[in-house]
Design a protein around this nucleic acid. Sequence first.
RNA 1: CGGGGCGUAGCGCAGCCUGGUAGCGCACUCGGUUCGGGACCGAGGAGUCGGAGGUUCAAAUCCUCUCGCCCCGACCA
Length: 582
Amino acid sequence: MTTSSKDAMRYSQLLIPTLKEVPAEAIVVSHQLLFRAGFIRKLAAGIYNLLPLALRTVHKIERIIREELGRAGAQELLMPAVQPSELWEESGRWQKYGAELLRFQDRKGAWFCLGPTHEEVITDLVKREVRSYRQLPLNLYQIQSKFRDEIRPRFGLMRGREFLMKDAYSFDATAEGAHKSYHQMYNAYRRIFERCGLDFRAVEADTGNIGGSLSHEFQVLAESGEDEILSCDHCTYAANVEKAELKAREVTAGEPTHAVEKVSTPGQKTIAEVAAFLKAAPSALAKTLLFKADDKIVVVVLRGDHEVNLPKLKALLGGVEPVLASDEVVSKITGAPPGYAGPVGLAGVEVVADNALAGATDLIVGANEADTHLRHVAVGRDFTPSKFADLRLARPGDRCPRCEEGKYVTHRGIEVGHVFYLGTKYSVAMNARFLDDKGEEKPFEMGCYGIGVTRTMAAAIEQNHDADGIKWPIGIAPYHAMVVPLQMKDAKVVETAEKIQADLTAAGLESVLDDREERPGIKFKDADLLGFPFRIVIGQKGLAGGTVELKRRGSAEVLNLSPQDAVAHIQKAVAAELQKSA
RNA sequence: CGGGGCGUAGCGCAGCCUGGUAGCGCACUCGGUUCGGGACCGAGGAGUCGGAGGUUCAAAUCCUCUCGCCCCGACCA
């Protein structure tokens, strides 16, 4: 623990512009509190100044990252924020990346971009400098500003355009080696977020556009999270809803008992309308959705009460992005207005069905005819999908796919980290090869690993706050303690406060002494708002009895202790926290 | 990009409909009284009313264009 003078400051000298009122634009608590507590100020949409307190927290998160990645064998380097277009043309992403890539020209007219990520640069570097399997494995990372010209920056630091990110890239000679690197990083990530004091889940994730076959997201649990995650209440399986698998149930295929029958359903288009009109449960209906995938039309049939999961469908289609077909296309294919599509009698298009429909009988489906549905439809008799697959969105209460007893429960999460096993996708595309032990040229096996540093700070607040302000976890608090002398005109009070701060510093603890000539109420309010883990109040009353007050932020309990005991108490608590990383 | 909303003092807002002196609260400065959970009294400083053009004797207010910001949808750390 360093004990530079910066770790013992006087409030009056620090730039901590706290605010009583919240700017209208701040919607989420982390944004509101970072703003009110004087941690950040906006410069432009999605672009923020990090004030001194915020930077201290950022430094603490960075330090934890550096220690844990170092322990995992990764090396830090620093790549440029400005990248030449040539590299992006080589990977094909100069065209593909879209408007999120901020491009500009230098004085000679050459094109550059502000790096939103660094796969190109790192792959280029490694392909030039690494030629032999003897130099592998290699894991390189940096902590650096990224710029993504987001369509819609929002929520302060949660989704900015410029943000601090730790990005790491692993290079291995074999797939097994790459999996080992992946798991090392996975474990390092667990330790990092534990040391940050966050309640998080590592969940299986969709690999999205980055590609690859293995991926986990690290999600900080918080009500305001943008992601929904499902976890088993019995075993350890957890996944982003986009990814959450479902067990294919064995079906006891009952024999169809009725012949298909047409029913008139004038004006009844939605599942809810048809179900109500025919006095049937939504689960007795099947919904038929038409998607365009490239130039092909794919028909997806699901149980009426289920929702389609697009990433699952995309995976089934071999990575082609499915887009819901337009009303015109639906009418053309089904011969009926939208709302009456059904799988029976559809010709010339591929029909896929969700596992839940395997062996289903007595379904109500659209008749491909205006104002008409069919009932008593049996899968296999009246229509036969080319495939059954897991295509629906999992819900809380659904059976866990990994164990017998468990059910899904739902949480909201903020994605603060993501690890990907990439395989050879980028190395093949960018022709990055090495010589293996048989003298054969092979593409690198790669992985990439990100942590949103500034987002982690915001997520910590989303998870740790109350009506009064922030409640920093000890590991990433800007300072450990606020020392609050109540009567600045009382020499004994001030002396005691100064002595306490000196003792804190000597004990390796970081503190701010609130030396402002303010009324106690203001000092208390600001201390709560800033959210340092401990507050020591020195007042005339307590001092008469030789005690000061120690309060843990967020706890109602106030301990009356001697100054020495108060310092010792904090030292013990902080040491216990640090123990977690040992 | 589609849909909705907002730009008036550092922050939160009123004024706009019905054109005519730019206002309130917080914050800030000075003086005084207060002093253990965002005190009170008095006196001050601070605003191109987002920008440009137009209508008018006169525009924060009406019209046109433009820029910026925020919220809801498809991306991502």
